[in-house]
Design a binder for these strands. Sequence first.
RNA 1: GGAGAGGUGGCCGAGCGGCUUAAGGCGCCGGUCUUGAAAACCGGUGACGCGCAAGCGUCCGGGGGUUCGAAUCCCUCCCUCUCCGCCA
Length: 424
Amino acid sequence: MIDIKVIREKPDLVKKAVVDKGMNVDIDRVLSVDARRRELETEFNELRHEQKQAGEKIAQAPKEQKAELSKATGQLKGRIKQIEEERARVDAELHELMLLVPQIPHPDAPIGPDESGNVEIRQVGKPRTKADFGFEFKDHVELGTRLKLFDMERGVKLAGSRNYVLAGYGSMLHEAVLRLAWDMMVERGWTPLTVPVLVSEELMIGTGFFPLHRDEVYLAERDEMCLVGTSEVPVTGLHGDEILELDELPKKYFARSTCFRREAGAAGKDTRGLYRIHYFDKLEEVVLCAADPEESAKHHAEILQNAEDLLQALELPYRVVEVCTGDMGQSKVRQYDVETWMPSREMYSETHSASRYHDFQARRLKLRYRDADGRVRVCHTLNSTVVASPRILIPLLETNQNEDGSVSIPAALRKYMHGVERIG
RNA sequence: GGAGAGGUGGCCGAGCGGCUUAAGGCGCCGGUCUUGAAAACCGGUGACGCGCAAGCGUCCGGGGGUUCGAAUCCCUCCCUCUCCGCCA
C-alpha cells in the first residue's frame, strides 16, 4: 500500500503507475472517497467532542438535574451512530481501493506491457545448445528417469498433476543445492529463520499477495489459513505491527521453506518435468531497512549478488534481466530476474527474482522504525531467491550430463553429496 | 479437546462506570553535578487520524451491545499461560 498522501499530492504520478503497470483501479474514485472520509472524520470529531463535554457536565451536576441533562444529550447518540455507520462504509471502500493501488515504479525501470519489455542487463557464462554437447542430448526428465533421480508418474499418483517424487541421488542433489546456499548465507552473516508456511490471510494481504493473487494460493478454508508460495511472507511479516529501533536495522534474514503454488491460469503450460510444479523448496533472503531509497538500492544489489554468486558456485550460465513495469506486479518498485540457461528449453528461464518494494509491504504490515529524530517511519523491504529446487536441477542435470547418460556433480556440491562426483 | 487464569503505552504494572488528561516503575532522551563516567536529582518521553495552526478526536486483544458517559458492565470471537487428555 502506498501513502495516501502521495495520491492526494501527486495523483498524476499514481495514475501513470496504474497505466504503466497495467493495473485496474480508479484513482479519481480513491480521491473522492478519501475526501468524503475526511469530512466524516471532522464531523465525527466535533460531535464526539460535544458529547464528551456534555458528559462532563452531567458528572458534575447536582443529582436532581442529571436526568434532564441526560435526556438532552441523548439526542447526540443517534447522530453519532449515523455518522459512524457511514464512516465505516466509506472506510471499507477506501481500504479496498487502496489495496489495489500499485506501488510507483522506479523512474529508471523500463516501461513495458509484459515479459517482452524486460531488458537484459548482462550474461554470465557460456550457454550451450543441444548441438553443442556433441552427443545425443537428453533433457532432465530423461536423465532423471534413467538415473532414478525422480519419479514423475508416482508423484502424480500421490497428488495429481505437477507433482513429483525425488529419490536417491535426486533427493540428495536437491538437498545439496539448498545446503550450499544455506551455508553461503550463514557465512555472509545473514540470520537463518525457520518459519510457519501455513499463515493467516491477514499476512497474505500484508505482503501484497492478496487480494490480487488469491487464485494462486492454496487455502485451508476451514481454518482460514493459507499455504505460502514463498517464505518471503512469514519472514517479511516477522516484525509486522512493531516499531523497530534504528540500530536494529537492517535486518538481514533468510529462510528455507516448502513453497506451494496452485499454478492457476497456467493450465497446459510447461507441463513437462520439474519446471512448473505445485510444490518446491526455496531459500529466500529478506531485508528490512530504513526508508532510504539509496539504502534500498544498495541492499538490492547485494541480494542480487548473492543469487548470482550461488549460480557461479554451481557453474551455471545465466543472465540478469531488469523486469519492466508491466511484468513486475503491483507491489514492486524495481525488480531483477535471474534466468539460468536451460539447454532443453534452449533459452534462459527464470530461476531467481530479486525485488525492491520500498514501503509497499511495510505499510500494509505496519512494519516501522524510529529514525534518528525519534519519528516513526515505515520501513523498506526487499527480497530475493537464493536458490529454488528442484527447478534449478533442470540446468544442473542437463548442463553436466555426459555421453554415457551419467551426470557429473559440480565441485561445490560434492561435500553435500558424500563425495559423489558422478551419478550413473 | 476439557477445566481454570489472563490479554492495559517500548517493557513491567495499577485501574474494575464520570476526579484517567491511563497512576507508578523500568527503559530511553535532555539537563544539573563531575576532569570524564556512574550514581543521585530535575524535566521530557505512546500510536493513529483530522487540521496551516491552536487544537480536536480515536485506540486499553478483535468485533458487537448496554449507558447521557465504558479500559471498567454484558455478548461473541481470537490469543497467551497453568493443569488434564491426545500426540511427532
